[in-house]
Design a protein around this nucleic acid. Structure first.
Length: 466
RNA sequence: GGAGAGGUGACAGAGUGGCCGAAUGUGGCGGUCUCGAAAACCGUUGGGCGUGUAAGCGUCCCGUGGGUUCAAAUCCCACCCUCUCCGCCA
């Protein structure tokens, strides 16, 4: 543990709710773990299969360098444990004798003297153990998930491969405009005033634009809850450090989130965080599984490190709406569940009539937490390419381990980790942008996709002033 | 924000330094009884880590983290959470 850092986080709670991207990650000391032991890969598994782990990490292209240090620390830890537990056994035994002697009003002074030394030794060992444990936990939390064996090998995102395509790139017999021009012309999008009120990468939606956003959210939630079997959740948009660690944002990616100043709280970058952590430190019963949740939330991203990229429009902003799909499933079903989840996200695009493709993500581009991932991408005329609008991942037991989410197969059976999955279903802001662009008309108006019209009071077309 | 109360096993609820990983009750599981069920009775009923082929053994866990002590659920410190009353507020 790192008391100085802990103090810094906890004190000064009167500083109010000023948002600042967390710029300094915890390089200085050990990452502070608040609840239980969290780990990403099973330490025993690593110990027993170091080469398999090394291979997996090499395929992902990160984390392999932690391994040797980790294995050495693990050996040290177990050495200390054997020694200190022997001493503790002795202390417990002698303390028992002392208790008996005292009860019989006999003298126990010499035993007490003797244990004073043993106790000091235990204290020393325990302290070293704490240090070693802290380092081990820190390393474990920084080692990424291993790719599933079915994932295609690659070294950059160029190696991702398109696995299916739906619809065709929209063709126009006029010069199409990007959504930020169309939206501003129609006065349903306002970036300029958002810059004044907040800053860059924020936006106002107005009139039919705001309603369209709301229609999309409702349409998505309704479809997932009524046709795909998800239970709706409305989560907190702020989470604590333990939750952000549970899903894998921390400790490595703190700078991607907005942190509330002076508090142990973060604005969620996705509903995945609160919804997955719903069951943190719980043992679910067999009848509970599988659990399907869908959740609307705003998502906040600091976009640190992407200065200058996609600076216009709704594609890369600090705050956007998203409907998320989250699953907790039996390990043996998680890859089937990933296919289904991806299809559930695609269903939205199909019903909206938006052309898209799905790419399978290669080993190098999986990110920190995923074992396998598909990215549905929507056709964006202004970019003249497909743009990521969802990301569907199977984390296997990676998050479940960190968040300590388990289930019991049978009464009395050992708890096992569930598998977790999630995917956007979909990113609402990008979806709105895609609709504006793909449904634009020569006169600058936008046709409302049919499935949204019931949510728009029957409105068929967005025109200036609507 | 102010004042007070409290956090113990699936739940309820005892326990104020040693015989407490924890009484008792409920629930769960197994059994006896029964044609079957209920009732009654008997037994059983947490998790992590280490070690071991295994049975087992050891250790840790009573909100969290430290501390005092030969010995902590019990004493001390800090933090988190819940409840009640007051204030404020969408």
């Amino acid at each position: 543990m790192c008391p100085a850092a802990a103090g810094a986080v906890k004190q000064g709670g009167n500083a109010g709710y000023i948002l600042v991207p967390e710029l300094s990650s915890s390089e200085a000391g050990f990452f502070i773990i608040k609840e239980g032991d969290m780990e990403m890969l099973d330490l025993k598994m690593i110990r027993q299969n170091p080469n398999k782990v090394r291979e997996g990490l090499a395929k992902k292209g990160e984390g392999a360098h932690y391994l040797d240090e980790l294995l050495a620390l693990d050996e040290r830890r177990r050495g200390i444990l054997t020694d200190v537990e022997k001493l503790k056994a002795e202390r417990n035994q002698v303390s028992d004798q002392v208790a008996h002697l005292k009860r019989e009003k006999k003298d126990a002074q010499s035993l007490i003297e003797q244990m004073r030394v043993v106790s000091q030794n235990i204290k020393d060992f325990d302290e070293e153990l704490r240090t070693v444990d802290g380092k081990i936990q820190d390393l474990l939390l920084r080692i990424p998930n291993l790719p599933h064996e079915s994932v295609l090998f690659g070294t950059t995102e160029e190696d991702n491969s398109e696995i299916r395509r739906w619809g065709e790139a929209t063709k126009f017999d006029f010069e199409p405009l990007p959504h930020w021009e169309l939206g501003v012309n129609l006065d349903i999008l306002d970036f300029e005033r958002a810059g004044k009120v907040t800053g860059s990468r924020f936006y106002f939606l107005k009139g039919a634009g705001a309603r369209l956003e709301r229609a999309l959210m409702n349409f998505m939630l309704d479809l997932h809850t009524t046709e795909h079997g998800y239970r709706e959740i409305f989560p907190p948009f702020i989470v604590n450090q333990a939750s952000a660690t549970g899903t894998g944002q921390l400790p490595k990616f703190g700078e991607d989130m907005f942190k509330l100043e002076g508090l142990d709280y973060y604005l969620i970058p996705t509903a995945e965080v609160p919804v997955t952590n719903l069951y943190r430190d719980e043992i679910l019963s067999m009848e509970d599984l599988p659990i399907y949740h869908t959740a609307y939330s705003a998502s906040f991203r600091s976009e640190a490190g992407s200065a200058g990229r996609d600076t216009r429009g709704l594609v890369r902003v600090h705050q956007f709406n998203k409907v998320e799909l989250v699953k907790f499933v039996l390990p043996e079903t998680s890859y089937d569940e990933l296919e289904k989840l991806t299809n559930n996200a695609e269903a939205i695009l199909q019903k909206l009539g938006l052309p898209y493709r799905v790419t399978e993500i290669c080993t190098a581009d999986l990110g920190f937490t995923a074992a396998k991932k598909y990215d549905p991408e929507v056709w964006m005329p202004s970019y003249q390419r497909y743009v990521e609008i969802s990301s569907c991942s199977n984390f296997e037991d990676f998050q479940a381990r960190r968040a300590n989410i388990r289930f019991r197969r049978d009464k009395g059976a050992k708890p096992e980790f569930v598998h977790t999955l999630n995917g956007s279903g979909l990113a609402v802001g990008r979806c709105l942008a895609a609709i504006i662009e793909n449904y634009q008309q020569e006169d600058g108006s936008i046709v409302v996709p049919e499935v949204l019209r019931p949510y728009m009071g029957g409105l068929e077309r967005v025109t200036p002033g609507s």
